[in-house]
């Protein structure tokens, strides 16, 4: 390592565990900071939308949740591929730890979308291309989690999950474009969100909230990966020592 920093050092669960423990409070603090700033901008500074009134303010959660749900799937597939290619135990654990958070964001995005859709479009659900592909993304997350949960041998679960995540990531653009095309053919049910040029302050609020969601996702994933490390390495000496210390 020319930079004098050995990444491989932290790819072992034993060294990563305390490092993650030290990082978690920082990411929580950043999440809180960005979250508060985003909410202040979103609720107090951003003006009322001319067309949609106060109801539009749900985008400060809705759009970040949608972004994160897609981004986390990519990150998950990246870790899964790394684990499959180089047999890093830790990266497979990262993929496993990210999946529930990604599924949560996909669900949140659908839920807030429904809450937004009811006053704006007059319907909880429309078969819009974006909604439909978000729903399919949630299905992909659920499949990944279900597959990992039903294989008892963790090594096999990691590898099988990694293959599924990679197949999924290749399919996501195909699914997205087919749904989009399907949707444009059925013009009757299409509802386009009026994308008026968004005021700059709204964009700032949205970006702050997205950063908050991002930091939250990292913090939660690190907490989850620590638990996974403890569970999988529970027979090793260092985990026993660690647990004895915590008692």
């Amino acid at each position: 390592m020319s930079k004098g920093f050995n990444w491989y050092h932290f790819s072992s669960p034993q060294t990563f565990y305390p490092l993650a423990g030290k990082m978690i409070p920082w990411f929580w603090a950043l999440a809180a900071l960005f979250g508060i700033a985003g909410l202040i901008v979103g609720f107090l500074i951003a003006p009322t939308d001319a067309q949609q009134g106060e109801g539009y303010r749900i985008i400060f959660l809705h759009v970040p949740a949608s972004w994160m749900s897609m981004f986390i799937y990519l990150v998950m597939a990246f870790w899964a591929a790394l684990g499959l290619a180089f047999n890093f135990r830790l990266s497979a654990m990262m993929a496993q730890a990210l999946a529930p958070t990604g599924a949560l964001f996909a669900f949140l995005s659908l839920w807030t979308g429904a809450l937004w859709g009811k006053p704006m479009w007059g319907a909880w659900w429309v078969w819009d291309a974006r909604l439909t592909s978000e729903l399919i993304l949630l299905f992909l997350y659920v499949g990944f989690i279900a597959l990992q949960a039903s294989i008892d041998d963790p090594r096999r679960a990691d590898k099988a999950g990694a293959i599924l995540a990679l197949v999924g990531v290749v399919n996501v653009p195909i699914i997205y474009f087919s749904v989009k095309w399907w949707n444009t053919l059925h013009q009757g049910s299409t509802v386009n969100i009026a994308k008026s040029s968004m005021a700059k302050v709204m964009l700032v609020g949205m970006l702050l909230c997205a950063l908050a969601c991002w930091m939250y996702a990292i913090a939660v994933a690190l907490m989850r990966v620590r638990k996974i490390v403890l569970e999988r390495e529970r027979h090793t000496e260092w985990v026993k020592a660690e647990l004895a210390q915590e008692k």
């Binding site: 399919i136 279900a146 399919n171 699914i175 087919s178 749904v179």
Partner: peptide, 23 residues
């Protein structure tokens, strides 16, 4: 292949594959 010898394989298989069948 992914659900080979996994408990609850049949239901799991549909969870994994049906989303990929959508296109």
């Amino acid at each position: 292949a992914l659900t080979l010898g996994v408990r609850g394989g049949g239901v799991l298989l549909s969870l994994l594959i049906l989303p990929l069948y959508i296109p």
